[in-house]
Structures are given as structure tokens and as C-alpha cells.
Write a protein that binds this DNA or RNA. Structure first.
Lengths: 224, 224
DNA sequence: TCAAAAGTGTTAGATTTACACCCATGA
DNA sequence: TCATGGGTGTAAATCTAACACTTTTGA
């Protein structure tokens, strides 16, 4: 061992951008930083990489610590490593984004960590380079969503087509024609109509749909 | 200071995937690893991040060390951090890809570092997770090339349309119709015909073109 | 003279976009 | 009864993909 002894070591941390969809808006989970330096500043949730865990595991652990949820959709955004990015020490941080259904997030757990859902279009200034992380995560997620059906991770298992449309509008940042949207959904066989009706969002009631992963895997022809 | 003293530090390195285009093929610069562990294995070129440099600077430095060239097109691929990815020690590595014009690379410098251009479709097994880095870099570069005119970084300043087409074919992995290709090129105002003729690649001679960055910046309507 | 690469338009088909009205229901 | 969101099809415009022959010139 001692192969690389002549080189410097640095701290490596993970920061997670957790996306949620609520009230027709795309939101991010942020909180007040609980440690020095920067205590009290708005910040992403994060943690340091342990010597005995991979960075993906670290991100999954961090995510679970915060949300109590496992097997979330999670992707790496990239490494952020400007020398002076952290005001305290030299830290290279690796950003990940994750998608959760807001309703799956236990309220008491949320309060315990004192994090909040904030509209991505109205984020305050965040600690260190966290705003840049969010922007980059957002771009990556937008791209991904055009080419893979990951949007369902932000919705309950059952959802109406209007909910789904609002989600895609919020992520894409532009309105979508209702008829064209529904036409495309029909072409994709894996968004299945159930015979359940949602009576919450409208008087008339709207059909509830679900994402059928199995059908998708057999014929992954996604296109929005 | 001493804010994060309770957490573990790790080594952070950078590995560069250097793309070149030669003989109608997309190639990557690889060499035999010169240090333990893994001495002698095929490997990407890389280096450790110093305490006083950012990761992007480290990548640029590493790139310049190897090629003698500055201001290359370079993008981060992502962080690779499985616990056991390096057989010697815990090292988190950040991969970058770069594009160079093979002709700009000084031959003696190449030999000095004993690196070679190898067809991306015929790469040997590389050290650690370097094959995965190359695959991911390739995918990213392919995506980028659809949406930004970065291909020129792989060609000499003056090039023929056939060269350009071959490049896009090599990167995209499929043949392109010659007439459709040239039609699209004409629509993009920033690929300018010069009145120079290349007599090397054909008897008849082919017009040489150049990329006009200024025109592109004024009207970045790229689409291939 | 012939092999090899350069250069050039048109058309059918596929995809995308725009657009407006009726329906069911709870308040 | 009326305001609210649910649900449905068509036509024009745009974009994409397929396709073949003439030119030039060095060997």
C-alpha cells in the first residue's frame, strides 16, 4: 500500500438535489445549514463520503437519512471542485439529483431535518455553489425527461392526465397542447388507464392512470 | 479551521478521455500505466488533484502536460467513486473528455508519454473502470455533438465537407446521406466555403470549408 | 479511359402543430 | 344554472428520408 502517499487527500462530500412536484410546481428540498461554516444559510442537504462507501452509496444513504425512502430514482449531476468553493476547507462535492413523490415524504421527518419544499423558480441564494448544482441538475433532469419516462417518480402511483401534463409543463417550462399531449400518451402503451376515478381535482371526475413499467420495458418507445 | 476534522479524506484524481479523429475513425489516446499498482496496464492518462487547484484546472493541467496544448474543448464526464475501483487505495476519480485535432499533437511529445491513438471501437481492456469512463464520455460527446458544433475541434481549421461528414458518421455510428448532409450544412450559415481547394483527398479536388465562430455566436441555429 | 471522389434537387412520407366544442357534476 | 375541469379529431405545415446522375482529373 502507500502507493499514492506523496499526493494530497481532500474531503469528498455529496449534495442532493431532491425534486418534488406539488401544487403544479416543481420544487426542491432545501434547509438551513446545521454546521459551521455557513451555519444557518439555505443549503442543499448533503454529507461526507466515508472511507468505506462508494459515492453512489453515500448519496443513497444521505437520501435515505433525509427522507426515509429507499430505491429512489437518483442520478449523478457531476463533481464540483473549485478550490475555494467551500468557505471552510477544501472539499470536492459530488451532486446527485433524486425524484420523489412529495406525498411519500413523511411530514414529521421533514420537520425533524427542518427542510422545506421551495419552488425551483424562487430559490433563495444557497450556500457555496449549491445554486449552480441545482441549475445543472435541473438541465440534466429536463433532458432526461424528454427521453425516459422518469416523470412518474414525481407523481403518486395513480394520477390523472392533467396532473401528468402539468408536471411536464412545469419541468419543460412551457405549456403543452392538451389534445396533442393526450394523443401522444395514447400512442405510448405503457400509460394505462385504470377504471378508477379521481373526484378530488374536478367535479366531473377524471380517469386515473398508472405507469406500467413492464410494458415499457418490453417496448420502450418514449417520446414527449 | 478544522471544521470537518472528524470526516475521512480521500485521494481525488482526474482521468482524461482525449478524442481524436483520424483515418475516418474516432480514436482515444491511451497508454501503458507508468505507476503501481497496475503498472503496464492500458490506461487513460490522469493525475492527482493538488490541494491548491480546482478539479477543472487539474484536468486542464493534466491535458496540457500530455499534449502541450491549451484551451482545448473539455467537459466533465462525472465522478467515479466505487470503493474498490482502484486496486491500490481509495481514490475518487473525475473523468473529463477533450477534443483535439490529431495533427496538432506533437509526435515526439506523444512518444515521450508513450500514448497511442486507438480506435474507440477496438479498445483493449483498460485499468480500473476506465472503459466505463470512455463509454460514458462517448455518450456525452455524441449528445453534445447533436446540439452544438463541437466537431470542428476534431478537425483542422480547413476541412472538406466529406471529412466533416465522415466525422459525424464516426461519432454517430451511422452513415449519413451525402445530399441531405450538405443541404443542412448550407442552411447553417457559419460553415463557410473558402476558395481554397484540397487536392490531397481526391483527384478532382474538394472545396475547403471553415467554421466561423463569430457567425455562429450571432445565430446559433445548430441542427444535425 | 477509367476509377474515385465531388457536387447537386426533388418528392413522398412522417411528424408536428394549431385549433374548438361538448360533457358531467357540485356548488 | 353555471363555472370548472374532462374529454375528443382533423387539417395544414413542416420536417425528414430516400434516391441517381454528371463532373473532374490523376493514374
Amino acid at each position: 500500500m502507500n502507493y499514492y502517499i506523496e499526493y494530497a487527500k481532500v474531503w469528498v462530500s455529496v449534495d442532493v438535489i431532491i425534486f418534488g412536484f406539488d401544487e403544479g410546481k416543481l420544487k426542491v428540498l432545501i434547509g438551513r445549514r446545521q454546521m459551521d461554516p455557513g451555519r444557518g444559510a439555505w443549503s442543499l442537504y448533503g454529507g461526507f463520503v466515508n472511507a468505506n462507501e462508494g459515492i453512489d452509496e453515500c448519496a443513497a444513504r444521505t437520501l435515505q437519512e433525509l427522507t426515509g425512502l429507499k430505491n429512489l430514482y437518483m442520478r449523478q449531476v457531476g463533481a464540483f471542485g473549485a478550490v475555494d468553493r467551500d468557505p471552510g476547507e477544501r472539499v470536492v462535492s459530488i451532486a446527485y439529483y433524486a425524484l420523489i413523490n412529495v406525498k411519500d415524504y413523511d411530514e414529521s421527518l421533514r420537520q425533524e431535518h427542518s427542510v422545506e419544499w421551495v419552488d425551483i423558480n424562487h430559490l433563495p441564494q444557497l450556500y457555496s455553489d449549491h445554486n449552480a448544482m441545482v441549475s445543472q441538475a435541473m438541465r440534466m433532469m429536463q433532458q432526461k425527461m424528454k427521453v425516459e419516462p422518469i416523470g412518474f417518480r414525481l407523481l403518486p402511483q395513480l394520477f390523472t392526465l392533467t396532473q401528468l401534463q402539468r408536471l411536464y409543463e412545469a419541468v419543460g417550462g412551457q405549456e403543452i397542447d392538451k389534445r396533442n399531449f393526450r394523443k401522444r400518451i395514447k400512442e405510448m402503451g405503457f400509460i394505462e388507464k385504470t377504471n378508477l376515478i379521481d373526484k378530488v381535482s374536478s367535479k366531473r371526475g377524471a380517469a386515473l392512470y398508472r405507469f406500467n413499467k413492464k410494458v415499457y420495458n418490453e417496448d420502450p418507445n418514449f417520446k414527449l
